[in-house]
Design a protein around this nucleic acid. Sequence first.
DNA 1: ACCTGAACACCGTTCAAGT
DNA 2: ACCTGAACACCGTTCAAGT
Lengths: 218, 218
Amino acid sequence: MSSEASPEERGYHHGDLRRSLVAAALQLVEEQGLEAVSVREVARRVGVSPGAPFRHFENRTALLTAVAEEAQDRLLQAVEDSRRQQASNDPLEVFHAIGDGFLRWAFANPAHFLVVSTRSVIDYDSPGLRERNDGLRATMRQWMEQAAAQGRLKPGDIDRYVLGLRGLVYGLARMHIDGQFASWGRPPQHALEDSLAVLDQFMLAIQASPGSPASSPP
Amino acid sequence: MSSEASPEERGYHHGDLRRSLVAAALQLVEEQGLEAVSVREVARRVGVSPGAPFRHFENRTALLTAVAEEAQDRLLQAVEDSRRQQASNDPLEVFHAIGDGFLRWAFANPAHFLVVSTRSVIDYDSPGLRERNDGLRATMRQWMEQAAAQGRLKPGDIDRYVLGLRGLVYGLARMHIDGQFASWGRPPQHALEDSLAVLDQFMLAIQASPGSPASSPP
DNA sequence: ACCTGAACACCGTTCAAGT
DNA sequence: ACCTGAACACCGTTCAAGT
């Protein structure tokens, strides 16, 4: 089966315009950035009339939300891969691998990261996005709890550590796509490297120094 | 002098259309959000023709950049005020006050924070914005250096602590305006409170535990 | 059941012409 | 010197009409 042609020589259009639209939008984001994604341009790329997409998406936001769900899946996949590659079972090292994967993906796919992290353009309340987010959050909390149970953390609220590290990697990634590394002394090419080092240092900072009281001694 | 009328009964328009446009845009952002700011709508509010703003701003981006500079001034003012209110000279407490002021302003002025932190809509390379940013960064580094000099920090790179804390507050503020606190267990009304607590906990985490080796012992 | 194509009310931006 | 107002090429979205 050719991936282009379809039933009936494509009478009107092939079977799955919806999927084609999302794919085209995803590619357009990647090639030209978020601003370049107009419903009309996506329709043009797929070869349908300007009104056709509205048979599948209520509005531009709904289309971009579908794009964001796809991008979010890729992000989660990258995080998952990074976690898997971390051979150790040390909860803090696993947690670190998650942050590491997040940063690397965000820096490697700035346009897609922009889509998943920009309200105003997507519907954050979509159940799809919500679920995906909740999953990652639960995973992070789990490993952090385990670290605490092993007495590895400085005293402090676990949720605050999780939220803080989430905010940290999110903030570094956003600073990058928002072009805010330029004024940060080091050249932007080192932004990923710097961000990884920052994550590292903060993961170290929250750990109990040997011999000091920990969050939850065994 | 009335603040509305002007020279010659306002022949075409008053003396400073440029300033009026920025003021109107700033208010529009506040009232209706960033998406609502179109050049035409701003012109309408000020009572001039659609083309008039282009005599003062090259394009929409230039107008929004001027808005961002104004908003950034307010942010820096808030940070400055917060720092001043911190009576103590303890460098870490001063640094904390800076982060605190940043968070409070961002949460109280989400639309304005969005403008100063959204590339794609403003020109980040504008000298105005760059200078303002550099100033804050230099201040933060200074206080952190002082903390290190007093042996108050855990061993680690100073710039990484500064960048990390910047990324942290930036990330928390962005998570808020991006609507990402909703899925975080606690209700969004507590987002500021939670963020302040997180900052607090991380400021504690980077401090040398008494009796442990510090970054730069006295 | 799904798509077309014209239509409407918006944009950003340009530029002659007015004062 | 500064603004108007018409114009152009775009949008998002709707909806009758086509197949």
